[in-house]
Design a protein around this nucleic acid. Structure first.
Lengths: 334, 334
DNA sequence: CTGTTAGCGCTTTCAA
DNA sequence: TTGAAAGCGCTAACAG
């Protein structure tokens, strides 16, 4: 079913059919309507590969994310999808599972697929070959969640966010405030969050216990139960993301502690599900959908203006401290 | 950066470059290696639009899902992505937000994008225009989660699953077993699950209370709190999916009930997160990744064999009853 | 083993 | 307002 079949049936040239879709005002009302009827009747849809090849524009935005199993990214993708659709763009999502090799492949795929722009989150923007490749390609792109001086990004100030969280705990009477994180070197966000933690602790004159760094392969619960059972256990635990916080709550439960009576636990990300849990999750909430939406808005702006995005286009969005039930005042017993 | 640039730089014809990628054995070792070096140097990647247009194969599988905000579908997509990658296929995911109009658009987009096959879950396969369109297109497709006699699908026997769950509750001493569900007409799965519930209750000689049907727009918690506070409240509640069950647990909490001491709550889907919660979620677990994986396997088999998939290719995968902490023996007080 | 060439379906200039 | 025709980048005969 090609444009030729439609042209033949309508008794016009293929150019006219094409115009009906791309420059409808250049076709007389009567023929346009007749053609549209035939198109409907035949169920014709333009072949996007041919269109893309010819115009060198795909109307598709590539989206490269670590995983969709973490709702943070699913929420962000949702924001991207809605805004893209609003502008008549398709999206081409790909996940990398936090693997730099896959990040590079994903970028290659986006370029090969003629994506008009790319939104991506990489493990580490400071040594990402994928990012270099993308920058060289002259395809407009936007980092989400990552932050780097020479690349445009949309993110939140994680460091400041954690500082405000530590201060919040302090005001609730907590002194033994610990932090748990995934592998630090695998994520610049985790690094920023940890940095905020050490800064805040220092500013308060508190000695931070060593970071509880949990490798990907390790069971979070196994890693935490020991710490939580020691008699020098923290009264408050900051987790570098919400999924980790949920597991920490379970670890506390298995260690015989109740949350928040015995220990306060907070996360980072603000996944929607956190508010539905019992206890509801205390978390630094990022505007995940809005991060995605804004990336699209800026990207499409750049595409239409025929210019690339620069660090000057970066944006830092406000975060929110969700006061969930998983955090409470420190008991004076410890 | 086209194939011509590479050919020019290598001093060969474009055909040779093409062969290096598609029939490497037809090119002498020395030229092949030289060309690969140049390709690397130039960062050349074949233009997929051109390739697809020419070959009429995209090596892409379309995936149409209701939403990625429900982990069931994110998990399924993950299974799809892994298996597709293993076979050298890309995926082209699209979400429809349970909207039939968007389902139709998604199918159109997949056809326009020359997807070699499509995996989809629709609201209701019995009146889906999207599904009819797809069937007529001669593009191989596979339904996931849905079940219908004239379409190929991969799913689980939801009805039998719920029956076993009701019996499980019965054996735990529960008699007032209620069910909550999203809008029934919007999902054939919800219908199957409800049917299993009424059948099982009848077989046990129990009178089922009316289904608690919760429209999309309504707050689940508001909808449930009343029921849970009545003195004829159920001692066990079956939710037609895990997200609903998580909200029901919260509603119980707000109604002053503790789970599972006062009320047992079970879900359906077996999202991975359910096992990390406290209490861990009792749920009928579907093999979500395997459902996705199998869809891909069958689809690629059909693509390579140049035949369509038929109802004969359908598969019903085994489910598992996760005995989570959210369910327990009925207290004899009621 | 390598080159020449037609043509996939579409858009777009140019001419009528 | 419409048509003819070139050409986007690639693959796959076919020829050598």
């Amino acid at each position: 079913m090609s444009i030729h079949a439609v042209a033949k049936k309508a008794g016009v040239s293929v150019a006219t059919i094409s115009r009906v879709f791309n420059n409808p005002e250049k076709v007389s009302d009567t023929t346009r309507e007749r053609i549209l009827r035939i198109v409907e009747e035949l169920g014709y849809t333009a072949n996007l590969s041919a269109r893309t090849l010819r115009t060198n524009r795909s109307k598709a935005l590539g989206v490269i994310l670590p995983t969709l199993l973490n709702p943070v990214f699913a929420e962000c993708l949702n924001g991207i999808a809605l805004e893209a659709a609003r502008h008549g763009y398709y999206i081409l999502p790909l996940t990398t599972n936090y693997d730099v090799r896959q990040e590079e492949q994903a970028v290659s795929h986006m370029l090969a697929s003629n994506a008009d722009g790319v939104i991506l989150v990489v493990s580490n923007p400071f040594d990402s070959k994928a990012l270099v490749r993308l920058k060289q390609s002259n395809t407009p792109y936007m980092l989400a969640y990552n932050r780097h001086d020479v690349h445009p990004y949309v993110s939140v100030d994680s460091e400041a966010a954690i500082i405000s969280l530590v201060n919040h705990f302090y005001q609730l009477g907590h002194r033994r405030i610990a932090m748990a994180s995934g592998t630090l070197h695998a994520s610049d966000r985790a690094q920023q969050r940890y940095k905020g933690y050490t800064k805040a602790m220092a500013a308060l004159g508190l000695t931070p216990p060593p970071l509880i760094e949990i490798p990907f392969v390790t069971s979070v619960i196994d890693a935490l139960v020991d710490t939580l059972q020691s008699d020098q256990r923290p009264t408050a635990l900051i987790c570098s993301n919400d999924l980790l916080a949920i597991r920490a709550i379970r670890a506390a439960h298995l260690a015989g502690l109740s949350v928040p009576a015995d220990i306060s636990i907070a996360g980072f990300d603000g996944i929607a599900l956190g508010q539905e849990l019992t206890p509801s999750l205390c978390s630094i909430a990022q505007p995940n959908e809005e991060i995605g939406r804004l990336c699209v808005e800026k990207l499409i702006g750049a595409i239409h203006a025929h210019h690339d995005l620069t660090p000057h286009d970066s944006a830092l969005l406000p975060y929110l401290l969700h006061h969930g039930e998983s955090c409470a005042k420190a008991t004076t017993l410890l």
